[in-house]
């Protein structure tokens, strides 16, 4: 049901300024003394020294997962590149030669670039990956760098990044 919000009467309490100022100072000074004398109750943190733990679902910088032998999980299927709304992923596919132990997966990313400056961290690439090769569970955010190329992440760097627990492997059970 609709109800009409209150509008205070303007009597001497409000019109004389002082009582309400004192009441307001009661609120602000309560905070002041709690923070100065009592337990510090600040919301902000001293950032680089104190770091807030990111929740498990936090979408941070990307990583490429590895197979047991350390080769990339990625099969260069281009799903993530297609799904990316920011067009920040660039893949050049290569194929394993015959006789290679991994010849059964046929393709691998010869080059895999992610422009972390262009990325909008929407997570659509992770969702689009059919073999759990790309993940954003690193718990790292894009930190400031001195030059643009420093945030152009290439294949081997992406492969070396671990998840928040230090793991490089994947949940994909297929053909380990």
């Amino acid at each position: 049901m609709p109800y009409v919000v209150k509008r205070p009467e303007r009597d001497i309490w409000e019109q004389s300024y002082i009582p309400e100022t004192v009441r307001g100072m009661g609120v602000t000074l309560r905070h002041f003394f709690r923070n100065v004398i009592g337990r510090r109750d600040t919301v902000t943190i001293l950032y680089p020294e104190v770091q807030r733990p990111y929740p498990p679902r936090f979408r941070g910088l990307h990583r490429l997962t590895q197979r047991d032998d350390g080769s990339p999980r990625c099969t260069a299927c281009m799903c993530c590149q297609t799904a990316c709304p920011a067009e920040c992923i660039h893949i050049v596919a290569g194929s394993y030669p015959d006789g290679h132990p991994l010849a059964f997966v046929e393709k691998y990313p010869a080059e895999f670039w992610i422009d972390e400056l262009r990325c909008v961290f929407c997570g659509l690439c992770v969702e689009a990956c059919p073999c759990d090769a790309i993940r954003m569970d690193t718990g790292l955010h894009a930190r400031p760098v001195e030059a643009r190329p420093h945030l152009m992440y290439e294949r081997n760097l992406l492969l070396s990044i671990t998840d928040a627990k230090g793991d490089v492997l994947t949940a994909n059970p297929r053909k380990k």
Binding site: T28, L29, H31, F32, N35, V36, D41, T42, V43, T44, I45, L46
Partner: peptide, 13 residues
């Protein structure tokens, strides 16, 4: 410093 303490911030350090 005082505004920081009033506003539940750390303030400039």
């Amino acid at each position: 410093r005082m505004s920081a303490m009033i506003q539940d911030r750390i303030g400039p350090v």
